[in-house]
Amino acid sequence: MEASSLTQQFFQQLINGISLGSIYALIALGYTMVYGIIRLINFAHGDIYMLGAYAGYFATTFFKMSFFPALIFSMVVASTVGMLIERLAYRPLRGAPKIAILITAIGVSLLLEYGGMILVTPQPRTFPELFSTATYNFMGLVVNSQQIVILVVSLALMFILTYVVNHTKVGKAMRAVSFDTDAARLMGINVDRIISFTFAIGSSLAAAAGILVGIYYNSIDPLMGIMPGLKAFVAAVLGGIGVIPGAMVGGVLLGVIEALVSGFLSSTFRDAAAFIILIVILLFRPAGLFGKNIREKV
């Protein structure tokens, strides 16, 4: 009995972890693509996710949109903002010292967080219920409709992304720029446009994650992006930063680990788990699970 209830709890946490993890994965994709292409840790990415959640909130409350139009709407809003940020804040700094760009990213992040507070007030808002909550039981495990929506939407988006990156012209250009920016430019690729496009895609995925979280937790606030943003970054590092499948696996893995830690140990250590994973990965396999190690030539 004892053992079977443990296994049951394990599988329950696994389910929770996978749905949380697919959200991390969606955000992590943006981090990893941007890093892959311009070697920038875009600290503002978590706030794009917040922005997406708010766009979804206004779309459903003011414009009375249903789920799918709201999802598209917020993805479009977020990708526009993402491209704008790249254009205004990061592009002027191409070639500047790395730390300067990093500080700029921190500045953009603060601007979105506190600018957001001024615009929409710091109070958390209740995200409207877009689906009637249904819970399904099988073999003693509980799955609710939100979790299914999260999983289906994230899988669909990741599928589309994989297709775009691997089988379209713009995807090929993205891979080229990420492999060698200068060579790509010499081959006639408009590098600036590809970078813009990368920001747009990454931001739209984050926005989707924002809406899904809104549906899942019912509550959004202007600072909601900080922790998931960091965690998603850890997920990207875990999978190997710059590697797209790595971000997906890393995200899900991190979600599962977190769920297991909070289920079996204590929820206060949940946040620590992510950072401990980060340190262990960085010390023993800095290129992540799917990355390759490179060393400086002397």
């Binding site: 840790i41 790395k98 206060t268 946040d271 950072f275 010390l283 800095p286």
Partner: peptide
Amino acid sequence: LPTLRLKGDYLAIATLGLGEIIRITILN
């Protein structure tokens, strides 16, 4: 001692993570 083998961005995020681990440990 162990962390400073890392370079650039990797060191930055490792120290960020360690700072948070210190804080979460104190919290507990």
